[in-house]
Amino acid sequence: MHEVQKNDRSLWEVVGDYFRANSIWMKWYCTGCGAIEMPPTMTSRFDMEQLGMGPMATPRQADVLLITGYLSTKTLRRVIYSYEQMQDPKYVVGFGSCTLNGGIYYDSYATINQLDKYLPVDLYIAGCMPRPEAIMNSFGELIEMIKKGEAKGWKHYKENHEWYKANQMDSLGEVIIHDEFHE
């Protein structure tokens, strides 16, 4: 597994990172119960828009893929598909314990335990579930990371593509398509 080492950004990237840090558009992949914490974060109490954050409709438009909670293997395939449709640079945020270590579903045969085996997670927000304060706090962290050019998960994914693919295949297996509704 390669590590992304280089951190000497070009001027274009530095400027770009400044914009990207201050305008975080998210694709919420509301897989689990964590999604319930997003509306309060968005509305007047916490108002994430003040940081330039906001939800977006499609992965094409989004910068951050937010996985809110446990992820069943069935959904994983879709999550990966969505991730690959996002435009570089893109960031993944794992939300809640379930993405971190499986949480209360740690021994389920239907969910994955560790998201970063399959996708390059830039930031985890621990907790079951993390309150809006925690979310705001950790996004502050993410903003700093982007600004400094430390959120390099997308590069990592590119460079270690085989490793990620192998993990994904390991978990999902190859699929034979029968027709539009049956794999």
């Binding site: 770009g16 914009f19 990207r20 201050n22 305008s23 509305t43 108002d47 003040q50 330039g52 570089d88």
Partner: peptide, 28 residues
């Protein structure tokens, strides 16, 4: 709008940031 909804809202130049950010990203 944010004030209407009792929020603070983004910076006044947020829209510029958003647009330039979009320009700075890769595309298909």
């Amino acid at each position: 709008t944010a004030r209407l909804q009792k929020r603070r809202g983004p910076k006044w130049y947020q829209q510029f940031i958003d647009i330039f950010k979009a320009f700075s990203k890769s595309s298909i």
